[in-house]
Design a protein around this nucleic acid. Structure first.
Lengths: 94, 94
DNA sequence: AAGAAAGTATCGGAAATCCGATACATTTAT
DNA sequence: ATAAATGTATCGGATTTCCGATACTTTCTT
């Protein structure tokens, strides 16, 4: 997995097919900041070129088999990095 | 909060006082990659200059009051960004 | 006490990340 | 059917992030 955004986008798409615009809106909701077109589309292109994403007729992206595999790798390192995530949460919730 | 590494370092230090070297080792354990001196020390300096960290006589860093506040902000956006983290975990565990 | 080893710090530059401008395509509204 | 609005895509460049080299300091070994 390369970047933070790549990982997050893979995760979002794994939950449901999305267009670039939809992804941008969702990222704004979550992070509080909408990525510019110059950010989002190159990332999507990169992921597609790597064979992690495929696009349907309505320009909605979904994960390929390889994309799912890559996401799983990303999830693993994510939870290794944040191995104490429950502690983080309880620390946050007060 | 600025970068990913800054956030992670704040979190680590919040759990226990650490030196730069100790932080580097812990990051290697978690992410599988040890940051170089040229990465870790400038970050620590930046956080110290911003008043988020203080250093004791043994060069161990700990969070200042402001650092704790900043960490809390970071934790909040973290869990907003990964609002479906339980889903991520269950997806990972198979 | 002297040398070796490990830790700390800084610097310049490579690479990654992200943006705003621009152009083009598609959809929506009139 | 035309215009407006929205979405998609690309490009150049600004910024951020990170590294490896180097130098210095501190700690350990003998």
């Amino acid at each position: 997995m390369k970047g933070f955004l790549n990982f997050l986008i893979l995760w979002l798409i794994s939950k449901e097919k999305m267009t670039g615009a939809e992804i941008a809106v969702e990222l704004e909701k979550r992070k509080g900041h909408k990525p510019s077109p110059g950010t989002i589309y190159p990332v999507l292109k990169e992921l597609k070129d790597k064979g992690l994403l495929s696009m349907d007729d309505n320009k909605r992206y979904s994960l390929t088999k390889q994309g799912k595999k890559e996401l799983e790798i990303g999830l693993n390192t994510f939870f290794e990095t944040f191995c104490d995530i429950d502690e983080m949460r309880s620390c946050c919730k007060k």
